[in-house]
Design a binder for these strands. Structure first.
Length: 469
RNA sequence: GGCCCUAUCGUCUAACGGUUAGGACAGUGCCCUUUCAAGGCGCAAACCGGGGUUCGAUUCCCCGUAGGGUCACCA
């Protein structure tokens, strides 16, 4: 890291508005701001942009904090624009005094009145007086770390409104005042703000502020390549949390959406990301969000977790199932631990467990399954008589085996394997597995025996044997 | 529509003028195997089009095309 050339400490910011829950797009912006600042040993500030009193809601603000906390993003400073109105009005007054802005009398048309009557209209409730910025009508050039030079003629913007009143600053104005007051050196934000940049630069110049360095991140897209929105399936971070996604997996995945270190590595811890991250390397084009891949990344992280941790985290997802509750099932800690290998082989995310329980895939865990005895017979040529013999022999072996042998599937396997191989593995193993689960598809019989334990396992095999009589 | 931005497999991407255009997810085939998973090994799959510049363009420039963003007294 080039410490020597950084005289000024870097300060970045994440500035969400509490008009909705925090989604993955917002998270990625927050993450990139965080990674960039931390890479250079700088600061990140969190600024809640709640100047829109109508649309800002406390519950959204809470959701933003919860999401960020879940992902472990810690901010060095936190501000809320609604608590800073004195600062904004001071700057508005200054601009007016310097004739860089002025109070404008607005004509209210019949159209405006009609609009105001319609709650869905965007420009509802027009003021008769607003504060407008005196646009010097210049061509603005700025350098974007990701996109390079961008040039825009601001003439067509006209004298845009910067505040509804002296105490009611609008977004573009409040942002510029804050960037200035908070000493923000780098503005890293979504691509959709690129159109706001010229007017913010204009306001900044009028304020005598030093222009921050901009980096506009490509948007995260829905599968149809349009901006990802709630309607397009964007879920809030807290929903990912509630579904049991691992925060480190989501972080890794999001960091790789639009950025990569230029190598073929794909797994990075938070610290590695801080060390490697560079905004200049982020992709210019928007990236389609692919949940399948997220699920795969999550699974990779799951596989590296200690089994105890998985057992503990997975339990609530069993209990959450409607079937589980309806049947009054329960599951012990010992069971959970034994179940981990089975889970690891078939889930990507904890919430998959709930679906599987609801789909009756785990019914066998909770009691003697019901089934048609005919399905127990491997193939017609085996027949019920021979199958009965297999049960008898296997039962004999299992009953003689010590409890110890049921600790892991390899031990169980070693008990039965030789016999099964002699008699024909399918002919012996299929009936056992089926007797244990009553299902055409399930984990292997050895694993099942460790999960169910010696007592229950033997009980089910005896039951099956009786059904064949 | 104006302005702005973007363009490599279906998706995320590597390549920073010279490669059989690489990897990952998804897909598919085979192997393993008592079923289902998991796993292993393969396969298929892309440089948007046209002009330049250059000995040589996926890469640099221009035009076209397509997609996206934005055009509030929202943020």
């Amino acid at each position: 890291m080039n410490k020597s050339e950084n005289h000024k400490p870097i300060v970045t910011r994440f500035a969400p508005s509490p008009t909705g829950n925090l989604h993955i797009g917002g998270f990625r912006t927050a993450l990139f701001n965080y990674l960039y600042a931390k890479h250079f040993g700088g600061k990140v500030v969190l600024r809640i942009e709640d100047t829109d009193r109508e649309r800002s809601k406390p519950e959204y603000e809470k959701n933003i904090h919860e999401g960020l906390e879940w992902l472990g993003l810690k901010f060095d400073e936190t501000y809320k624009q609604s608590e800073r109105s004195a600062i904004y009005s001071q700057y508005v007054s200054k601009l007016i005094a310097e004739d860089k802005a002025y109070v404008s009398k607005e004509e209210i048309t019949a159209e405006d009145i009609a609009e105001a009557a319609d709650p869905k209209a965007k420009g509802a409730k027009k003021r008769s007086e607003v504060i407008r910025f005196r646009n010097p009508n210049k061509v603005i050039n700025f350098y974007d770390i990701i996109r390079g030079e961008i040039s825009v003629d601001t003439t067509e913007l006209g004298d845009f409104v910067i505040a509804k009143g002296i105490d009611e600053p609008l977004y573009n104005f409040a942002v510029v005042v804050d960037e200035f007051e908070m000493g923000i050196t780098h503005v890293i934000r979504g691509d959709d703000h690129i159109a706001n940049t010229p007017r913010q630069i204009l306001i900044g110049a009028a304020l005598g502020a030093h222009m921050p360095i901009y980096a506009h991140l490509p948007l995260i897209l829905a599968p149809d390549k349009s901006k990802l929105s709630k309607r397009k399936g964007a879920r809030s971070l807290t929903e990912y949390r509630d579904d049991g996604y691992l925060p480190e997996a989501l972080t890794n995945f999001m960091a790789m959406l639009g950025w990569n270190p230029g190598t073929e590595e794909e797994f990075f811890s938070r610290d590695e990301l801080i060390k490697r991250f560079d905004v200049a390397q982020v992709q210019k084009a928007g990236a389609v969000y692919n949940e399948e891949k997220l699920r795969w990344v999550n699974r990779e992280y799951l596989k590296r977790k200690p089994h105890v941790e998985i057992a503990t985290a997975a339990r609530p997802f069993f209990e959450r199932s409607a079937e589980f509750q309806k049947n009054g099932w329960s599951i012990s800690d010992g069971h959970m631990m034994k179940l981990v290998p089975v889970l690891l082989d078939r889930i990507n995310v904890y919430t998959d467990i709930t679906k599987m329980v609801d789909d009756h895939e785990f019914d066998y865990l909770f009691g003697q399954p019901e089934y048609d005895p005919k399905d127990m017979i491997w193939r017609d040529e085996t027949g019920p008589e021979r199958t009965k013999e297999f049960f008898e022999k296997v039962l004999e072996i299992l009953e003689a085996a010590p409890e110890e042998s049921f600790k892991d599937s390899e031990s169980v396997k070693s008990l039965i394997w030789a016999y099964a191989t002699d008699m024909g593995r399918g002919a012996v193993l299929w009936p056992i597995r089926f007797a244990l689960t009553g299902k055409m598809k399930s984990p292997d019989p050895f694993t099942l025996l460790t999960i169910l334990g010696k007592k229950e396992g033997i009980k089910r095999l005896k039951h099956a044997h009786k059904l064949l009589a």
